[in-house]
């Protein structure tokens, strides 16, 4: 590599039933995709607390992906709809905080969609590479109260981010 290309770090939250299995399938099928994504398994996309996303940004992620079963196919019936509403709120909030929309992505991937998951990852990595580093954590690095600051965001936005039942 001659010119130092920016390699973003992307954290992906994958639901256990569809998307994590899609990642398994991408592996079994030996589909190569960008290595920049690091995956965390949750039982359902509905488990993804907006604070997980904020935390990931605060700890140095340049992008966050949330992946779950297609609408109507959630293993827990309908929790991905809740994830979807929460995601829209979150996008809104992040925008207000100056984080570009392209840094978060909600991706549906069924257990059979290894290829689709891999290409969504590639797309997102390209997009975030284009946006450049977020440096959120660094901005806060000096203030010494990272935890408190994150906590404040969580609290201030708890209500907006909540899903009306």
């Amino acid at each position: 590599m001659v010119d130092e290309r920016f390699e973003p770090k992307i954290v992906a939250f994958l639901c256990n039933w569809c998307s994590y299995r899609a990642a398994d399938l991408a592996g079994t099928a030996r589909i190569k995709y960008e290595p920049n994504v690091r995956m965390i398994r949750v039982m359902c996309s509905g488990r993804v607390d907006p604070t997980f996303v904020l935390k990931a940004f605060a700890l140095g992620a340049d992008g966050v992906m949330i992946a779950g079963c297609h609408p109507g196919e959630c293993h827990y019936l309908e929790q991905n709809y809740k994830a979807m509403r929460r995601f829209n709120m979150l996008k809104h909030t992040l925008k207000a905080m100056g984080v570009e929309e392209g840094r978060i992505r909600l991706q549906w991937a069924s257990a059979a969609e290894g290829v689709q998951l891999a290409s969504a990852i590639n797309e997102m990595v390209d997009q975030v590479r284009e946006l450049g580093p977020l440096n959120w954590a660094q901005n806060w690095h000096e203030d010494g109260e990272v935890e408190a600051a994150i906590q404040r965001i969580e609290e201030e936005h708890a209500e907006v981010m909540e899903v009306p039942a």
């Binding site: 690091r38 965390i40 700890l59 140095g60 992620a61």
Partner: peptide, 13 residues
């Protein structure tokens, strides 16, 4: 887990 997976990032703890 998030902290660990970003251990090598800025601010990673």
């Amino acid at each position: 887990e998030i902290g660990g997976i970003l251990y090598d990032a800025i601010g990673g703890n």
